[in-house]
Computed example of a mutant assay.
Amino acid sequence: MSNLIDLVTARRSRSKVTDASPSHDELLRLVAAAGHVADHSGLAPWRLVELRGNARVDLGHALAAAAGDDKPSSKPLRAPLLIALVVVPQQSAKVPVWEQEATASGVAHMLSLLLTDAGWGVMWRTGSHVRSPEVHHMHRLEQHEYLLGWLYVGGTDGAHTTRPAAPVDADHFLTSLAEGQDNTEGNERI
């Protein structure tokens, strides 16, 4: 298994992938692992929808209908496997919906990392019609469910390499509220 810090640091979205994709059984194994994200009260407020073959064409029609276009969108055909990321809010007096959405997002990101570690190319895509009625209906979502987007998944052949990302300046993003420290100066984010 890869070193986790190296895996996270090396992660890149792959906009171009080959026609290869993980099998349903391989995907099940990775989803089971991704489901171990932090989940307040164990509500499991998420699910995934696997789109292959003509299901991607159906999504293209739904996207076109949502946009008012006659021609189906070809965007869902950019990868052989799309995994729809669905938030399934649960009734809870303790866990607000935003926290449940964070759990679903965590599952999506974890699955993206696991797919990358398994050698697959992955890109999380959204768009202006991700929550349209047409797309909602095409995915057969319940009324209270909604999409966060799709993971586009396919093979990598080395021809579609990605450049290294710019380093993250952690000092810019990490502040400290130390005991006894005057925290009112110089911290514009509070």
Rank of each mutant, 00 (worst) to 15 (best):
A20E: 13
A62E: 05
N54M: 14
T9F: 15
V153M: 15
H139L: 15
D69L: 12
A79W: 09
Q91F: 11
S128T: 02
H139S: 02
V49N: 03
G106I: 03
T161E: 13
W124P: 00
V17M: 14
R12W: 10
K75T: 06
D25A: 15
D70L: 08
S23A: 07
I83L: 15
E185A: 11
A67G: 02
R12P: 00
P80F: 10
G154N: 05
D117E: 15
A166C: 00
K94M: 11
V107S: 05
R189I: 09
N187M: 11
E134H: 12
R163G: 07
A66L: 07
L114V: 04
S112E: 11
W124F: 10
H40I: 05
M138T: 03
G186E: 08
G60N: 04
P45Y: 08
D169P: 01
V135K: 05
T9K: 15
A64V: 00
A108T: 01
D69E: 10
T9N: 15
S128V: 03
I5P: 00
A20L: 15
L177P: 00
D58V: 12
W124Q: 01
G119M: 09
L177E: 09
R163I: 00
L82G: 03
R52Y: 10
D19T: 14
A79T: 01
I190Y: 05
P22Y: 11
V97P: 00
G42R: 14
A34Y: 04
L141Y: 07
E179F: 12
K94S: 02
D58G: 12
T175F: 07
G158V: 10
I5L: 14
H137P: 00
R56N: 02
G60S: 08
S15D: 11
V87C: 07
V135T: 13
P167I: 03
K71S: 09
D58T: 12
G180W: 10
G121R: 08
I190V: 12
E134T: 01
E26C: 02
Q91D: 15
V17N: 08
D6W: 07
E50Y: 04
R56E: 04
